[in-house]
Amino acid sequence: MSTSRAGEDLAALRELIGRHKRRDVMFGIVGLACMMVGVVTLIVLFIDLLIDGAPRFSWDFFTSFPSRRAGEAGILSAWVGTLLVMAVTMVAAVPLGVAAGIYLEEYAPKNWVTDLIEINVTNLAGVPSIVYGLLALGLFVYALGFGQSVLSAGLTLALLILPVIIVATRESIRAIPGSIREAAHAVGATKWQVTYDHILPYSVGGIMTGVIIGLARAIGETAPIITIGALTFIAFLPAAPVQAEFPFVSGEWLFAPFTVLPIQMFNWVSRPDTAFHANAAATGIVIIVATLAMNALAIRIRYRIRQRIKW
């Protein structure tokens, strides 16, 4: 009697265990499927762009201005504009972001001002990018009178990627062991000498990774640049920064109207004429390839630093 009860219990228990194990396997499959949704989307998106945009790829596409006729339109003014804006962004954001990171990591005392700065860096990373556009429209374009120019756009994107660079700088400085600082201080170096001769050189790889990731983000940013009023149809190039006559360099390009790749793409995709959609897709491929290449470069630099430096 009691043995058969035990047998029934055992069978029930086995079934229970089996059910739970099946649930485990099922969740493994569901989890894998959910994870693949993102990956598959990425692949489908890329293939979709390739199918739509590939026919437009030619040398002419890169060397022509936008045009009323879809078949003749190109992205010359857009990629030149993107390069110029990125140059301004880099010149503005890198010194500022690295200096801010150094201050917060090496100099900042523990007080409420430091807390305030840290809270602001965290919060700025969460501000929607279009709000930076509104800031730039009010501040750079009108209050400071820079107009709807390359300079305004570059500074806007610089503010946008500042938190990325600050965080990357801080992380790579934090990885440097304290003994390096102590050794440098012990032989009489001042705080700035320690920072400039030791901390900065050792953290340069990490900082570069952050800068590249920040710039990759800036290349694709559209909303803030539209907000400051970038034109969508530009059939000329800004004045070259290097001139044939004295004084050989010119800052005129900083104040020139401009367009950038994502805005050109937005313009083409929002046209009702579907012939332009192929142009939009081809531009999308150019942007994606640029950002992916930059991200890959950043990952590679990070990997090499990890391999080379062993404290």
């Binding site: 989307t41 990425l42 983000r217 994502p262 995709v269 999308g284 991200n295």
Partner: peptide, 24 residues
């Protein structure tokens, strides 16, 4: 293998997602 792909998903510019939403 998969995590870098998910990170790339973050890196795709939003205007490209817009294209994808409207035309795909």
């Amino acid at each position: 293998t998969v995590k870098p792909f998910l990170e790339l998903l973050e890196g795709v510019p939003t205007v490209v997602y817009g294209y994808f939403a409207l035309l795909f």
